[in-house]
């Protein structure tokens, strides 16, 4: 689409088969991601927001090929990652890293911080064995930990510090792209602010491109340049974060904004309450996935699936009721 795209995702589909029965046949499929297309621009922070089960984490894992998508393409500087095998992917693994939500379960409890970070750097050949120790020490200080942290084990750290270790580990192979899956969701607000600031500084310093997956619209709005709003495996809206409040047009995005409590007792308003439940990801409705909960639903919404259409520059909406540009 554009020259500055680091990653071009087209019609990405990820279905998980559910096996069962006597013959262990595939009985049904979880439709986690259903044909999603977007670009990740070089140097931007792209937010992915949605409720649990909307496919945002699956999408993040597909982007860096921790999962092999069922269909669609993920072009990284022109190469389709979705088509590559294990060996051919190796050079790209180095360029894309992930920061996970729970920094405790994603760090090996038997490895010191130094070992965990050094392993990544040496495996990808970023530094020589002799220079590794100095490299690790530098990295540890860069993420705001004291130098003596290097020889401690993960259990000796608090949640916020562990997340810093997770970030140091992800940065050890000098990636271009960082996929952060709910990196601050498990942290207290004061610690959350520390980690967000760190990510912001590192992004500027190292020129990273970040895909930031979160359920928290406040954090997304603060931290990201653009946001993809997902609902049941589809992107329903894509727009600039700065214009989120003013311009959001999809009824689901509006509902998310309205359900988010505002931090001001002087500005009390009834929170937007949606009726109905999220449809099952096993059998998707034929029309708009949001039709069952949408406050402005029309009969045609239940029959026809709305495509994600560009409305104005940089703003795309998947809703039949939104007139085109």
């Amino acid at each position: 689409m554009s020259a500055d795209a680091l990653l071009e995702v087209r019609d990405l589909v990820m279905h998980f088969p559910v096996r069962g029965g006597v013959l262990n046949r595939v009985q049904r499929r979880v439709h986690a991601v259903n044909g999603v297309s977007f670009d990740v621009r070089r140097g931007e922070v792209l937010g992915v927001v949605g409720e649990s089960g909307c496919g945002k984490s699956t999408l993040g894992k597909c982007l860096i090929r921790l999962l092999s998508p069922t269909a669609g393409s993920i072009r990284y500087e022109g190469t389709d990652l979705a088509a590559l095998g294990h060996g051919d992917l190796m050079p790209f693994r180095k360029k894309m890293q992930m920061v996970f939500q729970d920094p405790y379960s994603s760090l090996n409890p038997r490895m010191t911080v130094r070992e965990a970070v050094r392993e990544v750097a040496l495996f990808h050949g970023v530094v020589s064995r002799d220079a590794a120790d100095a490299y690790v020490s530098e990295l540890i200080q860069k993420v705001g930990l004291r130098a003596d942290a290097a020889d401690k084990f993960p259990h000796e750290f608090s949640g916020g510090q562990r997340q810093r270790i997770g970030i140091a580990r992800a940065l050890a192979c000098k990636p271009d792209l960082l996929v952060a899956d709910e990196p601050v969701s498990a942290l207290d607000v004061s610690i959350q602010a520390q980690v967000l600031n760190l990510l912001m500084d590192l992004k500027d310093e190292l020129g990273l491109t970040v895909v930031f997956v979160s359920h928290d619209l406040k954090v997304i709005e603060h931290f990201c340049d653009r946001v993809l709003v997902m609902y049941l495996g589809n992107v329903v809206e894509e727009l600039d974060c700065e214009r989120l409040h003013a311009d959001a047009r999809h009824p689901y995005t509006r509902a998310l904004l309205g359900a988010n409590p505002i931090n001001d007792p002087a500005d009390r308003r009834p929170l937007t309450v949606l009726e109905g439940d999220v449809p099952s990801p096993f059998t998707l409705p034929p029309g708009c996935a949001f039709a069952g909960r949408c406050p402005v639903v029309e009969p045609r919404c239940r029959a026809q699936r709305p495509p994600l259409e560009l409305k104005t520059c940089g703003h795309a909406v998947a809703c039949l009721l939104e007139p085109g540009a």
Binding site: K218, E221, H222, D225, E242
Partner: peptide, 25 residues
């Protein structure tokens, strides 16, 4: 005061600014 300041704020004014933090744990 510090706790209130460290919450990400809505709106363009605070967008992409560093958040005030509480040092330490």
């Amino acid at each position: 005061r510090a706790l209130l300041d460290s919450i990400p704020k809505s709106g363009a004014r605070a967008h992409k600014k560093r958040l005030p933090t509480i040092p330490g744990i």
